[in-house]
């Protein structure tokens, strides 16, 4: 069977790491390392500024606003099906003041 390398070449390959000099870390290694080690707090802030997070937050706020507007609108409309109660009075400023004991009384009385 024929081989790619002769025994002499294999010996040469096997000893090819003789006299090897150690590789040196790239320039600015420490600076890059410090950049990678940025504090977790900073990362958290960056996360909060991510477009996806900002868009999602705004979307949620928009939906909440729409829902609350619809609810308010529904509550403000007079209920045509409701039976009129003769005892119920329309809310006036006077009745509101009376309910909260805010009648116009003077301390001199």
């Amino acid at each position: 069977m024929q081989h790619k390398f002769s025994q002499k070449r294999i010996e040469s390959i096997m000893t090819s790491l003789g006299g090897i000099q150690p590789a040196v870390a790239p320039d600015f290694f420490y600076t890059r390392l410090k950049g990678k080690m940025q504090p977790a707090a900073e990362k958290k802030t960056i996360f909060l500024l991510r477009p996806a997070f900002v868009t999602a937050t705004l979307a949620v706020l928009f939906i909440v606003n729409v829902i609350s507007l619809l609810q308010t609108d529904k509550a403000a409309k007079p209920d045509s099906t409701a039976v009129y109660n003769i005892n119920s009075k329309p809310a006036t400023i006077e009745s509101f003041a009376a309910a909260y004991n805010m009648n116009n009384t003077s301390v001199y009385e």
């Binding site: 070449r9 390959i13 090819s16 790491l17 000099q21 150690p22």
Partner: peptide, 16 residues
């Protein structure tokens, strides 16, 4: 190619 390998041994070292 390891940067510390001697020039004349680079080819053999790559095979190794």
């Amino acid at each position: 190619n390891h940067p510390g390998v001697l020039q004349e041994k680079k080819e053999d070292a790559a095979i190794l």
